[in-house]
Write a protein that binds this DNA or RNA. Sequence first.
DNA 1: CGGCCGATCAGCT
DNA 2: GCTGATCGGCCGA
Length: 205
Amino acid sequence: MSRGRWTKEQFQGDAQSLAKALLGTQLVRMLDDGSQISGTIVETEAYLGVMDRAAHAFGGRRTQRNETMYAAAGTAYVYLIYGMYNCFNVVCGEPDEPTAVLVRALAPIEGIQRMREARSKAKRERDLCSGPGKLCQALFIDRSLDGEDLASSDRLFIKGEPGPPKDSTLICAPRIGVDYAGAWADKPLRYYLEESEHVSKKLRS
DNA sequence: CGGCCGATCAGCT
DNA sequence: GCTGATCGGCCGA
């Protein structure tokens, strides 16, 4: 039961709750050739919708690119950033409420050889999925998966018990790369597992 | 180690 | 024409 694949209901709720619940679960990618690539989610960020200056849907913005943010909870929102990388989000909240969770880092589990092929520039295993653009490269996630229903898809889904894991330490910190967002840049909406070697950036102590 | 910079495109002014 | 929910190469300390 707890090891099973996530159903539609499990994705519902606010972005901060989902951001924490996704920590410690597995993101699974099935390729067309039948091979499976997966990793444990160790870092997420919550994007709170129309009032959140850092979010794509701030002020009710609705474009071709961010249209999927307005879809039902459990939909994958994959968008192109800086003209060259993809970012993977899980939509949550009510339909027409553009809230989502950005998945920022994974600890690789299955298909590590495939990940290395897709990310030949990464020398160390901990660089394979330690960033939102990196994990999309490693798991072959591109915009063909934008709008995918994670509760029914054979290509991309979530499994495992909702987190954060009991034996882990949860860190809350400001989000990455949103310095333009004024007061919203400082809010602690980034979550990661302190003991993981696979997070994109750690707080300096 | 840290800082700068280019790649490359969707959306906004 | 500028900027961004990024990354990796190159530089100097």
